[in-house]
Computed example of a mutant assay.
Amino acid sequence: MNRRKFFKWSGLAAIAALAGGVTARSAMAGNKYYSGPVSDHFDGTSFFNPGGVEPRGGLDLLRWKLGNGNIPWPDTFTSPFPQAVPETRVDGDRLVVTMVGHASLLIQVAGLNILTDPVWSERTSPFTWTGPKRVNPPGIRIGDLPPIDIVLVTHNHYDHLDLETLRVLQGRDKPHFITPLGNDAIIRPRAPDARITVMDWGGSETVGPGAIFHCEPCHHWSARGLGDRRMALWAAFVFETPAGKIYHIGDTGFHEGRNYRAAGQKHGPFRLANLPFGAYEPRWFMEAQHQNPEEAVEGMQLCGASFAAGHHWGTVKLTDEGIEQPVEALHTALDARKIARERFRPMRPGEVFEVPDPTPA
């Protein structure tokens, strides 16, 4: 095999692993991460989306990757914002979100510093030498982070669970890790002394005065390789704070808006929703796992969010759409629904969003 073909196919292998072992169903007799009772979303071995759609298999992966719909990205996509140096703490009614990149956000509220799905590595891949590579540096240097209190890991795909970054954060700040069922078994070997709270859908954890994390469903899946598909849970989270409620989704398919409606009815309205809106083409392959910008805007409305911070775009190339197409489609969707563009911000690395207080004076 020549060098060019080798890197093409090794890159495809990295994408397959990043997508969660989509080239094979679980080959293991039992669950390597979690053991627990059967529920409406766990069959005793694997987690699933009730009434949902499974991710596609290996033949569809090859059909997608060997197709001609891919729009290349530039090697670099420079953010207009310099790398941020965040405040140490944010108190009172203030809510500040700073974009690191992809799904990594620093949320500062109620005196807490919260990192979501932190990834500082160059690649979101099981390999250091191939796989999706970031096209811009993190929006905050890791040394410029304020003391981190909580690290939220929404699921175990490589663009959301970066073990090297988690190891560094544990050595630096010893934060409280919060993650859905089973993911602690992945994190623990790299951070053996970490404080890790695992949560099932419907669970909650008090993290400070008036501050509660609620674990809620989203339509996604999980895996780190070829033999662990859906063996660890994925989730969305609600942060209930004295400064308002935040709805955070790391990754999701739209799933007819069911989870948005449920979250709005149970917890809404929200001051802020952190919503993915990139990595969605081709739709025939991605629809069940990644919502598109139009669906993200509809989800914002369904859950009752006053503002949204858009993420999961413009840092690592995972799918076919061009690098700026998500923002263009987002603006089209907002305009069509007569929603002011400033209410849904497509966050770029280093961007700081001081979220307005929607409460009338």
Rank of each mutant, 00 (worst) to 15 (best):
T88Y: 08
P82H: 04
V96Q: 04
L115Y: 00
N68Q: 10
P74W: 07
R123I: 14
H102E: 14
E122W: 12
G51D: 02
G101N: 13
F47S: 05
M99E: 06
A103F: 05
Y33I: 13
W64F: 13
N68G: 11
D117H: 10
G131R: 04
G92L: 04
R94A: 12
G57Q: 06
T130H: 05
G52A: 12
W73G: 11
G69E: 03
E122Q: 11
G36T: 00
V96I: 12
G36I: 00
V53Y: 12
P55F: 05
H102R: 07
D40K: 15
N113G: 02
G101V: 15
I107H: 01
G69Q: 05
V119Q: 04
G58V: 01
G57I: 08
N68E: 10
T98G: 03
T98K: 01
V53K: 15
V90H: 01
G67K: 06
T116Y: 06
F127T: 15
G67V: 02
V38M: 14
L66Y: 10
T76A: 08
P50R: 15
G44F: 09
Q83W: 09
G52D: 03
T98D: 02
A103C: 11
T76G: 01
F48E: 02
W73N: 04
P50D: 14
V119W: 02
L59E: 13
G69W: 10
G101R: 07
T124M: 02
D43M: 10
I107Y: 06
V96E: 03
W120G: 11
D60V: 14
L59F: 14
G101A: 12
G30P: 15
E87R: 11
V90R: 00
N68I: 00
T78F: 14
H41Q: 12
S39M: 06
T88S: 05
T128V: 15
D75S: 10
V109Q: 01
D40R: 15
T45G: 07
W64Y: 10
N70K: 09
N68K: 11
T76R: 13
P80D: 09
G111T: 00
L66D: 08
P80S: 02
Y34P: 15
G44L: 04
